[in-house]
């Protein structure tokens, strides 16, 4: 019994952080024995843990503590996502409904999609100066192509037979929109929001590094400029925790809640640029309770 548990994936999963820690300590030992002066560049795990503890308890050298910092960034992300959803929703709807509009915009959507967010970040920081405008516009520019593509797919996949039936039975337009169009668009909108969030976050962080006065990206650059390697690594771990919290916890819960009415939640998630949704674990059964 115990032997079987030792061979299972859970024990492997628990071993991974331990091995990482071991490799980390070994690297420090090795590097310190070859170049003794390089020690301050390679922080120990305890330094990083101490730094993270200080950050979490709000005892920080940076101008804002973690909670304020991430809140500032989240506000920017929210504003940018809202604009991206509205603009992308309108354009995507038009592109899904009309072939001509689709031809008009398509290549430019692809072009904006493939642009590295570094380019947006540097451009926005130069063109709009330091402050909120640059990062928000960077979020809009990184997020909007994903919203457009998802909404377009949603409109194309709309159940036309249900419309025909609604028309045949004389259902008023508002009710048809409320009960047919919106439910059929929902999963696509949700996928769009998820993409816009994940990629907009990456874009926002880069934009804040170059063109922010505060926020998460700016703060990690603050530690980088202060040449505190433990600060950079500790903040990076906070980033990972933040992203995992939103991805695994919040979005999964939310999608279960929104799609409770469906027998199985198969949100249309296509990998356009990166497949962020791909996990190696088997799909959990979405319906419970």
């Amino acid at each position: 019994m115990l032997f079987r548990a030792l061979k299972g994936p859970l024990s492997g999963r628990l071993t991974f952080p331990l091995v990482c820690l071991g490799v980390w300590l070994l690297t420090i030992e090795l590097v310190a024995s070859i170049w003794p002066f390089a020690v301050d560049v390679l922080p120990t795990p305890w330094q990083v843990a101490g730094f993270m503890w200080d950050e979490i308890t709000g005892n920080t050298l940076a101008p804002h503590n973690v909670y304020q910092t991430f809140w500032i960034s989240l506000q920017r992300l929210g504003a940018g996502m809202l604009i991206a959803m509205v603009v992308g929703g309108v354009v995507g709807l038009a592109m899904g409904l009309s072939k001509s509009v689709n031809a008009f915009f398509n290549d430019w959507v692809v072009a904006i999609l493939a642009m590295p967010n570094l380019a947006w970040a540097l451009f926005c920081s130069l063109a709009f100066g330091f402050g909120d405008t640059g990062p928000i516009i960077a979020v809009v520019l990184t997020g909007v192509p994903y919203v457009i593509i998802n909404v377009r797919e949603g409109v194309r996949n709309a159940p036309s037979d249900l419309y025909d039936m609604a028309r045949a039975f004389g259902v008023p337009r508002e009710r048809a929109i409320r009960h047919v169009l919106i439910p059929s668009l929902m999963p696509f909108l949700f996928a769009a929001g998820r993409y816009a969030f994940a990629l907009g976050w990456k874009g926002l962080v880069v934009a804040e590094v170059f063109g922010g006065q505060d926020g998460a990206g700016w703060t990690i650059k603050f530690w980088y400029d202060a040449h505190r390697a433990y600060g950079v690594i500790g903040y990076a771990l906070l980033f990972v925790i933040f992203a995992l919290f939103f991805e695994k916890f919040l979005f999964d819960k939310l999608s279960r809640r929104i799609f409770r009415w469906r027998p199985e939640a198969s949100v249309a998630e296509e990998a356009f640029d990166q497949p962020p949704a791909v996990t190696t674990e088997p799909q959990r059964t979405p319906q419970h309770g």
Partner: peptide, 13 residues
């Protein structure tokens, strides 16, 4: 199990 979190971190960071 060992590499699962490594892959998740690699994709989301």
């Amino acid at each position: 199990g060992f590499f699962r979190d490594a892959v998740t971190i690699g994709i989301t960071t």
